[in-house]
Each structure stands twice: as structure tokens, then as C-alpha cells.
């Protein structure tokens, strides 16, 4: 399939899959708590409703940043699914995140301020691991390009088990799931009112939600890279990873931000760096 076609399929299918995954998240969460839970399509109902609501702003420019957050998130996913450079994907993803943080800063409310600061701390916590993941994939496959990595004949998971686990840890932070949901939390959990998204309503909140769907698809796509040699195992493995994230979300209480940074960097050092070290030593 040409990159152009893949891009078009991604643009259309990603919000659909991302929204359904969000619905699945709420359903599974409910079942883990012995509740019936909302319908699978609930996230779509929510976004449609938010789109119809009045958009209240503290400053009009705050929603401008959110628009760019969504745009850059779509762009980042586009880069990934068109088979581009993984490093570029990491940088674009960070830029998208920064726009969300800027939007929250712009809203100048103490809750969204603190949420923005904590989001920056979260980025600081997971960014090294995500970069190391890209580097270690390069070490095994000899390429940063997604279209080359997908064609690698062997399962990436077997030489990189440590990096994979470290990446799971980073995902937990990136998805803002418990125990790392301190900048803004999902479902009915509350922290700093609603942290990062406190001052956003109506269409802006809907855009944040849709951006999150694109982000979910992008990050799970990255998880798939670890299993790319065996597509069926890949799809199941990716779903299992998503299930694992939801399970931890429901079994852990929230940690403090300092614990999050320390543990994330410890994991990066032990699992990420350790894995790369072993890999390099085995080569010589």
C-alpha cells in the first residue's frame, strides 16, 4: 500500500478506532468495578454533545492552542502511519503536547496552571524512555523509518523485552492513567478539579477528546511495532497492552509527581538503558 493511501485510511479510521477504544476503556473499567458501564459508543455521544455546547473561555486565544494541539496530533499520527522517521514522530508528539500545555497556561486559572506544570513534569518523566525506545529499535533494525521497521523479519520484542516494559511504563504516564493521572484524570476521577482541561468547555473540550483518540491510535501503533513480524500476534498483543493499562488504572491509587519522575527515570535507566547495554555487549 502506498503511503498516500495509508494516510487517508489513518485520517478516517483513527478517530473511529480511537473513539471505540475509549468506549472500550470505559466499559472494561465499569466491568472491573462490577458495574454495567456506558454503551461502547459513549465517547462519540459525549463529543457530539460537547460540540453543541456553549464554549466558555477565559481568554479567546486559549482555544487557538487547542486547535493546534489537535492539528499537530493528527500530523504526528500521519507521520507515523505514512512510515516516516520515528525521531520526527517523537518530536512532533512533544510539540503537540506543548501546545496543550500552552493552552492550559493561557487560561490562567490556578487549577489549569498546576495541571500544565504537572503535565510538563510528566513529559519530563516519559520523554527519555520514549527516545530510548526509538534508539533501541534503531539498534536492532538499523533504521529509524517506520516502513523499514515494520518489514524487519524478527519479533522486536525478543531482543528488547526491557525496552518494551519501559515503554509500557511511559505509556501509562502518556495516557494519564492511574497511578500517573496527576495532570488531568479520566472518567469520574478528580484531581485539581480537572487539571489541564479545567478551563476548556464545549468545542475546545471536544477537540481535546478527539486529539486523545488520535494519540491512542498512534501510541498503540507504536506498541504494534514490537510485534510487527507476526501481525496477528501484534494486534492481540496491542489489545492486551491496552487492557493492561486499564487494569493498572483500576488497581492503583495516584502517586505523587516526584515519585512518578523518580520511578520513570529509574525504569528508563534499568530497563531501557540496561537492555541497550546488554544488546551492545552481546554484539561484541
Amino acid at each position: 500500500m502506498s503511503p498516500g493511501w495509508r494516510l487517508i485510511i489513518y485520517l478516517v479510521a483513527a478517530p473511529l478506532i480511537g473513539g471505540l477504544l475509549a468506549g472500550l476503556d470505559r466499559k472494561w473499567t465499569a466491568r472491573m468495578q462490577a458495574r454495567q458501564g456506558p454503551p461502547l459508543w459513549q465517547p462519540f455521544y459525549d463529543v457530539v454533545k460537547l460540540w453543541k455546547k456553549e464554549t466558555i473561555v477565559v481568554r479567546r486565544s486559549q482555544n487557538f492552542y487547542i486547535f493546534f494541539f489537535l492539528l499537530l496530533m493528527i500530523f504526528t499520527g500521519g507521520l507515523f502511519f505514512a512510515g516516516s522517521d520515528l525521531l520526527l514522530v517523537v518530536f512532533a508528539l512533544t510539540l503537540a503536547g506543548i501546545f496543550l500545555v500552552l493552552g492550559a497556561y493561557k487560561a490562567s486559572s490556578p487549577y489549569s496552571f498546576l495541571g500544565a506544570e504537572r503535565e510538563l513534569i510528566q513529559m519530563m518523566a516519559y520523554e527519555p524512555m520514549v527516545l530510548l525506545t526509538a534508539v533501541s529499535i534503531y539498534l536492532v533494525t538499523g533504521s529509524f523509518y517506520v516502513h523499514d521497521i515494520v518489514k524487519h523479519p524478527n519479533l522486536l520484542l525478543s531482543p528488547l523485552p526491557g525496552v518494551f516494559l519501559g515503554f509500557l511504563f511511559a505509556l501509562e504516564i502518556k495516557f494519564r492513567k492511574s497511578p500517573f493521572d496527576f495532570s488531568c484524570s479520566h472518567h469520574a476521577h478528580q484531581e485539581l478539579v480537572r487539571g489541564l482541561t479545567t478551563e476548556f468547555s464545549g468545542k475546545a473540550l471536544a477537540m481535546i477528546e478527539v486529539a486523545h483518540w488520535y494519540e491512542t491510535v498512534l501510541l498503540l501503533g507504536w506498541v504494534y511495532l514490537f510485534f510487527a513480524a507476526m501481525p496477528l500476534v501484534g494486534v492481540l498483543g496491542t489489545l492486551a497492552v491496552y487492557g493492561f493499562l486499564i487494569l493498572t488504572d483500576n488497581t492503583f491509587a495516584r502517586l505523587k509527581w516526584l515519585t512518578a519522575v523518580k520511578s520513570a527515570w529509574a525504569v528508563t535507566l534499568a530497563l531501557g538503558f540496561g537492555n541497550i547495554l546488554v544488546l551492545t555487549l552481546l554484539r561484541y
Binding site: 465499569a30 458495574r35 454495567q36 458501564g37 456506558p38 459525549d46 454533545k49 472518567h187 478539579v193 478551563e199
Partner: peptide, 22 residues
């Protein structure tokens, strides 16, 4: 919101943030 009544099955979310509420 508890398992017995589970208002979330009807799409209800207890938000805690007036700007997100209906």
C-alpha cells in the same frame, strides 16, 4: 454512581467541574 444503580450506564459523569457539566 455505585454498582447497584450505576448511573454511568446512562452516560452520566459526575464531573466536579462546572465548565464541563450540563
Amino acid at each position: 454512581l455505585t454498582p447497584v444503580y450505576d448511573a454511568e450506564r446512562l452516560g452520566v459523569i459526575n464531573t466536579g467541574n462546572p465548565k464541563h457539566a450540563d
